[in-house]
Nucleic acid binder design. Structure first.
Lengths: 150, 150
DNA sequence: GTACATTAAATGTATGTACATATATTTGCC
DNA sequence: GGCAAATATATGTACATACATTTAATGTAC
């Protein structure tokens, strides 16, 4: 469905304005789809993303700063997301001996096991992105990178 | 900057996976930029979106259902966003006489005045989308619509 | 080595999202 | 008319975002 019908707005001020609305809407659409798939596993998208970063580091620990640096949403509150993961015993957190300001966050066996189960439904696989051809996905990546050109 | 550098992830499983991450990241990037521009006006992006819909209806009132239908995020809680706008006296809310289950939400003069001030920085104008050519914006719209093809 | 700035993380508050449930009203069926 | 289903909105809870502030530890200047 075209974006005009989707949000019942027949016209846009410009192709640019439409593209902006379309981006925000489609991204929300993708994320909602993904969140629904993750729900049975008891972790949210953001918690999943943090677990993925931690697996990437494993068996080295990560600091909160490193998590923030790599998260999709930089301003989100990594401390509190780690709180939730710790409560589910998917990660451990302990003060780093060499710099006691920082905290070593490590994914647990249970966390690794959960990610393994979730791997087949990796973020983006199976969602609408697959409606594109490989070439179109490349085009999209190029357009998005250009948008963020600072 | 390419998305790989942006989130310090050197490779992706597939062009599709990269496109998914890129979409979510770029959309967040656009919204953060916009939210910062709106901040001096004391309304959030979502509150602004609701005000825009109400101006589109003006001088007719809108129901909460109509707002939900037209909002970018359908599952968001329109009632509570209207609460915030009402507290700022940007909208009024009163029970509709013909169907007392529904509520007539109307934008106030103050609300119209605020939107007028904000018009020059309309969502998406001036943000990164303008890095694209008109043709590229069209391409992007086509790709996004295709992603959502249900 | 003490004082001050910087850094890392945690915490507080307002807002919004996602989803389940509650409440009131209207509609439709008999 | 009476009652069940549907509808419109509001509310409760858990989670996340955005941003300011706090606390503790480290680095640096003198």
């Amino acid at each position: 469905m075209k974006i005009e019908e989707e949000i019942k707005q027949p016209t846009f001020k410009s192709e640019y304005h439409k593209a902006y609305i379309n981006m925000v809407y489609t991204s929300g659409w993708l994320q909602q789809d993904q969140a629904a798939k993750f729900k049975p596993f008891g972790v949210t998208l953001q918690q999943y993303n943090v677990l993925r970063i931690l697996r990437g580091q494993h068996p080295k620990p990560a600091t909160i700063s490193l998590l923030i640096e790599r998260m999709l949403d930089k301003t989100s509150n990594a401390s509190r997301i780690v709180d939730k993961l710790e409560a589910k015993e998917l990660v451990t957190r302990k003060q780093c001996p060499s710099d006691r300001r920082t905290v070593d966050v490590l994914i647990t066996e249970k966390g690794l096991e959960l990610l393994k189960q979730m791997d087949p439904m990796e973020a983006g696989e199976g969602a609408g992105i697959r409606n594109l051809t490989e070439e179109e996905a490349e085009q999209l990546n190029a357009l998005l990178d250009k948008i963020r050109n600072k």
